[in-house]
Design a protein around this nucleic acid. Sequence first.
DNA 1: GTCTATAGCTTGATAGAC
DNA 2: GTCTATCAAGCTATAGAC
Lengths: 218, 218
Amino acid sequence: MAKRGDATRKKIQDAAEELFAARGFYGVTVREITRLAGVDTALANYYFGSKKNLFDSVLLRRAEGLNEARLKALEDVEREAGDNPPDLERVIDAFTHPLLDRSERGGPEWKSYFALIAQVNNSPEWGGRMMTEYFDPLVRRFIAAIKRALPNTPDEEIYWAYHFLSGALVLTFAETGRIDNLSDGLCRSSDLESVHRRLPPFIAAGFRALKERDNEKP
Amino acid sequence: MAKRGDATRKKIQDAAEELFAARGFYGVTVREITRLAGVDTALANYYFGSKKNLFDSVLLRRAEGLNEARLKALEDVEREAGDNPPDLERVIDAFTHPLLDRSERGGPEWKSYFALIAQVNNSPEWGGRMMTEYFDPLVRRFIAAIKRALPNTPDEEIYWAYHFLSGALVLTFAETGRIDNLSDGLCRSSDLESVHRRLPPFIAAGFRALKERDNEKP
DNA sequence: GTCTATAGCTTGATAGAC
DNA sequence: GTCTATCAAGCTATAGAC
């Protein structure tokens, strides 16, 4: 049922994704977007109504399928665990791997998308509202699984640990080249495979440390 | 030796800090800044030459004193350790506490400054260059201390673990309200004291997990 | 659906009076 | 040092021809 203007619509979204990812919402003009897309300027407003609507549509476009894939990964981990608590590291991997995998192997559009998420996530203006809107149902599902993996851990510790996980994961997507500079080239921002190997054990150990820290209280 | 125009200069920087923190470089106009500062529009260009220069000056303004305080905190930890390796958790605390403390107790200008850092850090356009420029010498000093605290850990693990630390810390500064939504009010973005108590043990456990992970290799 | 043309504003920056 | 006045450029958004 592909309509006539669907290709144009997609070209505009693709160009918007790339440019918003690089310079954020205000750093890009509608004219730049349509120029990169190779279509007339007026078409951006024809299809999306406003620049802000276009921005939202770009963020929303990949969120749904992404969340489905992550939910499926979590369900696989839980099914294998059966009646036992799921393994914490595997839960975290189900949360992060579908993202890292698409950024690494999904082509440049996915890289742009995640770089855009990295900016939105750390924006006081949009981070709270947009990330909540697009990702909270899934995140709540994961937090429930983490609670089963770490019984007797106070909720507060779980939420703060999730916050640290979110920050570490999302900075990765920005691929700013900072770690390249800092390590004099030993590590590369673009090497998401390295993150995939290290992030789950790193974060799982952090979660367990907060649990222990709490159990030691008088 | 306070010159005549120093007060105006500071008013412009203060207003710029607040607005850039909220909406980023492109999301703010010079006119808005000078309006909030209560001075004439032309003075921003008179004192700073360009909008970009003003932005840079705002970032630089607090960086130097901040790095001095963090270096002093690290030196205190190292002095107490004497010839022994310093305690990892205390090294991380020396890295993070001067920041969290100023954001929590330094007044709204410090809050704005760190929120601005949170945006710059995750920006593909500026994150790599600016953070490297303003903070790398200090970060390299801390990484050397972490290496002493965790002997026989491959450098690659250290750099990636630092990357995760940076992401977790810096998302905190954005104070987006996301954790408030997610936890239904149990945790608050603005509660940096909670982060101060949890971040060092969380991150230290992560560092150790990467070290172990590597030692287990065949 | 796509284009031209343009309305109506705002932008960063500066020249020059005081 | 501070202000008014203004420039040239660019902005989002839309009306209307095709």
